[in-house]
């Protein structure tokens, strides 16, 4: 807990120095970020909108990271989930909402899970690196999505934009009045965070995940199957990211198009680490980062590029990971 707070603190200080080099008053910048994201009901509702996909991805990632499977592919798994959901929405435009929405979530989960299973299975069977394979598959997912929206799924009435046609009303998620908060996805995220908190802590599967992550040799000695655990955790991780993709197309964009995610899958990695791989802490963690994304718009008004947000995210991860290494050492003063 201390390391998380400390990392955020150090990142704030480091970013402040960079703001100064842009001739921007860091106190003013932070004030604007805070007011933009938490200072008004509108700002806060947008923060929640951004926190929803972060939450779903980060809960899944904490499970995979707990087993030491470095899934960097949540971004691609999210896109695949969006593609799965869009296929349902576009193929069955006339089906009633109570059939089509659950099917979208179902197929979105499956698509994301398959995208997660591939690097997991390759790692368990052939010893490849999950991080590298899952990262490469992000690009594949991105190209698949582009192919679809520029090609076969391109909507005829969209003026040549790479958009599909808008989903029919039954394939759109309900929103909280006056906001873009698609609350079914939000509830799903909160529920899954709670569920996986207990699964990791108190279930047989969670026990296996923890043992495997701590020491794979002991897991083998205890008769646990690494193959099974690698597949299960990557399936969960990919599936949850897929659900996040469903929420984005069915709740925000209302169609499939390029640019549906500003890197939620990557930011979720930082959220998961900052939350110490604890699914319950992921909830406040994703609100914090959702706020940063929203606040990023606000600081553009005082002459900073939006990339300042990415820089800040990167700094937090750097201090988290760097701090992790440093905790292995003891400070010794020599005279």
């Amino acid at each position: 807990m201390l390391s998380s707070v400390l990392s955020v603190g150090l990142a704030l200080v480091a970013a402040a120095l960079i703001f100064l080099s842009f001739n921007v008053d860091p106190v003013e910048a932070y004030r604007r970020i805070f007011i933009g994201s938490f200072g008004s009901w509108y700002g806060f509702s947008e923060t929640i909108v951004k926190a929803i996909p972060l939450m779903l991805c980060a809960v899944g990632l904490s499970v995979a990271f707990k087993a030491r499977l470095w899934n960097i592919g949540a971004e691609g798994q999210l896109l695949m989930g969006a593609i799965g959901a869009s296929w349902v929405a576009l193929t069955f435009p006339d089906a009633p909402a109570y059939v089509v929405l659950p099917s979208m979530f179902g197929l979105g989960f499956v698509f994301g899970a398959v995208w997660g299973l591939v690097p997991g299975a390759l790692a368990a069977k052939f010893g490849t690196q999950v991080a590298i394979v899952s990262l490469m598959m992000n690009y594949v997912a991105g190209r698949v999505l582009e192919y679809l929206v520029y090609g076969p799924w391109k909507g005829p009435g969209e003026w040549g934009f790479p958009y599909t046609t808008k989903f029919s009303a039954s394939a759109q998620l309900p929103r909280l009045a006056g906001t873009r908060i698609h609350y079914p996805t939000l509830l799903l995220g909160l529920l899954l965070a709670l569920a996986f908190f207990f699964v990791i802590k108190r279930s047989k599967f969670g026990f296996e995940v923890r043992v495997t992550g701590e020491n794979p040799d002991v897991a083998k000695y205890a008769g646990m199957s690494y193959f099974k655990i690698a597949l299960m955790t990557m399936l969960i991780s990919g599936g949850l990211a897929g659900l996040a993709g469903v929420g984005e197309v069915a709740g925000i964009q209302l169609r499939l198009r390029t640019g549906i995610s500003p890197g939620y899958g990557y930011t979720a990695i930082i959220v998961a680490w900052l939350s110490q791989l604890n699914p319950l802490l992921v909830v406040p963690g994703s609100l914090l980062f959702g706020g940063l994304l929203v606040g990023g718009d606000a600081i553009q008004m005082i002459g900073l590029p939006f990339a300042a947000v990415d820089m800040f995210n990167g700094l937090i991860l750097l201090f988290m990971v760097g701090g992790e290494v440093l905790t292995q050492y003891k400070i010794k003063v020599k005279f």
């Binding site: 279930s203 047989k204 599967f205 026990f207 020491n215 000695y221 205890a222 008769g223």
Partner: peptide
């Protein structure tokens, strides 16, 4: 190296091999 999980508790390590049995778990939960 292989007999215990260092970072986990003594009680977790006690059931390292028997956590599946019905005395320590009912169905899914421990």
């Amino acid at each position: 190296r292989v007999g215990v999980v260092q970072g986990m508790s003594v009680s977790d390590n006690m059931v390292l091999k028997s956590y599946r049995s019905s005395s320590f778990a009912n169905g899914f939960w421990l």
